[in-house]
Structures are given as C-alpha cells and as structure tokens.
Design a protein around this nucleic acid. Structure first.
Lengths: 338, 338
DNA sequence: ACTTGGCACTCGAATACCCGGAGTGCCAAA
DNA sequence: TTTGGCACTCCGGGTATTCGAGTGCCAAGT
C-alpha cells in the first residue's frame, strides 16, 4: 500500500523534474498529480526514498531531485515504453526509405534519431564481422599493380592496392580470381579469411602473386577500422544542457570525438534485443557522470551493430527509449531488404 | 607619422584583446607595448579609430574592442602570416604521413588542424569534378546484375549496381569493359561523361546492356554527393567560446551539421591559392555574426577542394592562418604523391 | 499504524546598495 | 601635436536584507 504510493511518488518526481528542470517539492507534487493525500504524507515518503538513495536534495530546504539510482528504478520498473505516434512512425519510415546506400542509411538514421529525441544521436556503422563475402574482384591496373575489390553482404565495399614484382598474364589473373572467389564467396568474413589462407598453403601450385593477394584480402577482412566508424548528429542539442558547460558538455564533446569511448558505450548495448540504458556514473567514465546513454542493437538478431543517443541523465526516458527502439527496428528492416 | 602610429595602435589592441579577452585601455596599451607616447595620445588615436569604425566601446568608460572592420584591416594590412615552428611542421607531416587512404587523410587533417588552432576544423573531401577516371571495372554479380566500379584519380572509388533484363555473355562483358575504358580512362570526369554518351550514340553496334551501364556511370560521375561531404573536428574547442552559448555556439553547431552552409563558407575560399578570411557578419549568415572562417583551397592549383577552421571573431589570426596554410600544403603534397 | 495540520526553521535567489578602480573625454599648457 | 591634469562614468564585486518555497518534526486525528 504505502510501498505502491512511494513508487508513484518517485515516478511523479522523475516526470516533474524532467519536465520542469527544477527540484520538485511536496506541495507542487500533490497538486500536479492526482495524489489524494496531503503534502505532509508525501514528505514522509520522500524522506524515506531519500534514505534509500533514490532521491537527493540539492540543499536543505529545496525540493527533491532523482539520483542515478532513482532514475534506474524508474526505467527498470516504472516505465512502460510508450509506443510512438503513427505520425512519428510514418516520419521515420519515409525519411529512412529515401536512403540510397549504406552510408546514407546511417546518416539519415542519426538525423532522424537526433530530431526525434532532441538529443545527440550516435549510430555505429554495420560491422564487418558478421557479414559474408559476396564477391571478390581483382583488376589489373598496371602490369605490376592489382586492385582488389571486396564486396560484402552488408553493402560495404573495401578496396586494396597490391604491388607485385612479376607480371601476371591474363589467364593467370582469371584463375586467381576464380580460385579466390571459390574459397571466399558466401563465407562469413572470419571463415573466409582462414579459407583463403588455406588455399595458399594447399597443394595446388599457386600463381606468383597469389600470396600477396591473399595477404591483402585477409588484412582487409580483419581490418576492423570500418567497424569502428561512427556517425554523430544533433550536437546542437547540447545547447539544451543549459548550465554546466565545462563540467558536462565539454567532456561529452570530447567523448564524441573519441570514437573509442563511444564504441565502448554503445558496445554494452549490443546484447539481447532490448533497449539498454546506462545512467550517469554507472559506466567507467567519470567525466560522463551526468550523462546517460540509451542504446540498442540493430540488424539481424540486433547483433549487427548498435545505435543510440547520449544525453543528460535528466531526460525523458520513456519517449527516448521508444524512439531509439523504433529507429533501430526500421533500420534493421531496411538493411534486411537492401 | 600619426597614421603609422594609429595602425600600430590598432594592431596592438587586436593583439591584446585576443590575448586577454578583455577590452583594452590606453594605459595598459602603452605599458605592454613599447609605444613611446603617453596614454593621452593613445586616447586620441583610439577616438579617431573609433570614429572610423575600427574600434568600439562595449560601454562608456570601458576599454576598446576591435570591430569586424578592425579585424579586417588587421588581417589585410597588419598581418604577416608567421611561419610555423619547425616542431609544428614536423608534427603535421609525421601525423599526416601516417594516413593509409583518402578518408584517413581527411580525418587526420581535421584532427591536426583542430589541435593546432584549437578551433573547430572543417575539411571538405576532395571533389570529384577535377579528377580523372583511372579505371572502370564491370563485374557480373548474378546473370542479371552488374556491379560497376569507378576508380578516380583522387583515390575515390564509386560503385553502382545495374539491373538488366537480357543475360550477357562473357565476351560481351569483356568488350563492354574495354570499350567503356577506352572512352573514359584518363579523361576528366566531365569529359568522360560526354565521351561515354557519345559511345552509345555512335555507329558501332552496342551490346544490349550498354545503355544502362553508361547511364549508371554517367550518373555516378555527375553525382556530386561526395563533393558535398565534409569532415568536422575539434568541436570540443567550442567550449572556449565561454559566454554567449545560445547566441554563438548553438547556431554554429547547427551550421556544422548543415553541410550546405559549411560548403558555402568554404566554397568562397577555394579561389586563388591564398588563405581567405571571412570575419563576422561579412557573410550572408547573420546567426554566425560572431564567428570567423579561415579557409583555403588545397590540391593541385589549390582548386581541388578546401579546408579551414571556424572560430570566434576574436581569434589569433596570424597563427591560425599559418596553421591552415601549412596543413593545406601538406595535404596537397600527400595527395600529389598518393 | 498512517495520515494530517501546524509551526519553526533553513537556505538559496532576488534585490538593493555601496564602493573602488579602470577608463574616458576634454582642456589648457608645452 | 603631444601631454598632464581633472572631473565624470560606469561596471564589477562585495555586503546586507528580504522573500518564499520547502523541509522536519510533533502532536492530534482517524
């Protein structure tokens, strides 16, 4: 009974604080929400919640503010991710449907996500590691220069230049091309790499430049630089951080340029289809103690890559989570079709 | 005589103001710099400079601050772009030499430029329009799907998928490939497009899918999306804008995401090898009235593309211009070699 | 066992006020 | 044309005061 009300109070405080940006007091609370009790009762509850660490007072005789722990409880137990309006759904789909290639999908996703949430959006490019080899093309640019083009199932195209000493005859090149494709096409990228290496070590006589070509391909496959690419958008929304520029915005801007940090943050989210929320100092980055990350995986099994938003701990979690989830779904669908 | 001193005063004020961020008064001026006159004299000069619009007073009985016009005169007539220290030169070259591909060059450039100037750096990707076609590859993915790979002299690789109805025999494909390459290879991108179109309209019988292939290639060539790409870095330096977040930083962040605006700003700079400076409201964007752009072209003839920085009007122009110029030169050199 | 009204208390935010000092403009003398 | 002198202005920072929202606690009520 009382327990129920306490949770209701916590929820109400979170909602009010998110909306007003000001510590919320007992009186205002009971007025704004339909609690049928007196302010004094609420005060007792608030005191209890504070003891348990869910609320905090900026200073004596000010209203209460949710702590990280309070937000945590809020998102874990008090939140029902509210569905997006059909208008929003339509906006997402039409905007994303206009994309012409992979890069464009990513860019549009960042954009729509940042506009929807009015936060800084972050989208990791689809990672190589899960995708399969669709085709390998080998082109002779000059007598001693080969261009390798590696086409992957996720739409990404990597190319490498290979120099070699001996000239290669046309038919050798054709043979090389077909052998490489036989070994790699259709394989997941990691298997493809080992399969290619096996070809070189095998019994069949290998054309002269084979080793160099295979090396370059394997390197291109295991080069996860493109795994690490990230698109960021909506930085202008940082303006709404309002106060504490030096303490909050600057470290965030720095983190946004340090892709490693971002990847770490997003990475935590890739597991299991749900939307993940990291609140305040829960992560290992102290400088980001006043920011939260809402992220989720996307792509097949939600395991291809991840996307999300970064914002102040004081944010509208339900809407934000809904937006992140919705965008992730649409992106997944589009990647599936493409 | 007096004219000379006035200019010296203007220069001194600009330098002091940039360094201290505070309006500079007559007394401080004559102390800090070796002017051999009394403060009263300086006051007269300052009053004159104010009449002419080069200085302004934030309020009565405060020191003077340069106006945009003042900065303009400063960069136009009072500035000798000071050479970079050899340490800085070395830093630039070693950092840039580590780049592995075109994207990497661009990214590293933004990075080094933003660190050097402690401003927001902006680098436009090398534009297609000036580059030549190095090679066109046509790969048959499935019987009815062709992959076109267009390799340009600036290192960029564009690819397009083409669907067609009729199946294409291997020798037809080879013929197609060689004819396309004969027409396009080595040509500037615009000429290549017209040459390709000419092939289709010519007398020789054209293989069935020729038209579709040519169309796709021409479209890829005239698709200037990659012209419009831009890399931005060093946004964390915006923190040093200090005051006026809403009025200055927010519009800037928004502009940084509106690539069109950035391109416009950079675009002005592409002409004639020198470093261009746009100060405050000189451009068409009123929201950016307290920011300056320092930019220059790079690449052969400095006409390939452009790079620069965006920062507050109150910035150290000589150093900044030097840094921009130095980075542009190194990037040009690297692109030349690659 | 909760809830509620009352009441004294706290503390930040806003307001008013004052003061010092840096800076100016102007004038008369050099 | 330069310079010293002088009266004046005005911002920034410090202090005092007030105001009010909000709290904690207690005793009474259900």
């Amino acid at each position: 009974m009382q327990e129920d009300r306490r949770l209701a109070v916590l929820r109400a405080i979170v909602e009010d604080y998110v909306a007003t940006e000001e510590p919320v007091g007992s009186k205002a609370l009971v007025e704004r929400h339909g609690l049928n009790v007196s302010p004094a009762t609420i005060r007792n509850d608030m005191a209890a919640l504070e003891d348990e660490g869910y609320l905090a007072q900026p200073h004596t005789s000010a209203g209460r503010v949710p702590t990280d722990k309070g937000y945590r409880l809020f998102v874990d137990r008090l939140t029902t991710v509210k569905p997006m309006s059909s208008a929003e759904r339509r906006a997402i789909s039409t905007f994303l449907d206009g994309a012409v290639d992979l890069d464009d999908v990513v860019h549009r996703s960042v954009r729509v996500l940042s506009q929807l949430t009015r936060q800084v959006a972050v989208v990791q490019y689809p990672s190589l590691s899960r995708s399969t080899v669709r085709h390998v093309e080998i082109v002779s640019l000059t007598p001693t220069r080969l261009l390798l083009v590696l086409i992957l199932s996720n739409g990404r195209v990597e190319q490498r230049l290979v120099e070699h000493d001996a000239e290669i005859a046309g038919e050798d090149l054709t043979a090389l091309r077909s052998r490489v494709n036989r070994a790699a096409t259709g394989e997941q990228i990691s298997q493809a790499a080992t399969a290619l290496n096996a070809v070189v070590d095998g019994d069949e006589p290998t054309p002269p430049a084979m080793a160099a070509v295979v090396d370059a391909l394997v390197e291109a496959m295991s080069d996860h630089r493109s795994d690490e690419r990230i698109a960021v958008g909506g930085t202008a929304n940082l303006a709404r951080f309002g106060d504490n520029f030096e303490s909050a915005v600057r470290p965030l801007l720095e983190a946004l340029e340090e892709q490693v940090v971002l990847l770490k943050l997003l990475g935590e989210a890739t597991s299991g289809g749900a939307v993940t929320v990291r609140i305040g100092a829960e992560g290992p980055y102290e400088e980001l103690s006043s920011t939260s990350v809402v992220a989720t995986g996307y792509g097949p099994d939600d395991a291809l890559s991840s996307l999300g938003i970064v914002g102040p701990t004081r944010m509208d979690y339900p809407s934000t989570m809904a937006a992140v989830r919705a965008v992730a779904r649409y992106v997944s669908r589009i990647l599936d079709e493409g």
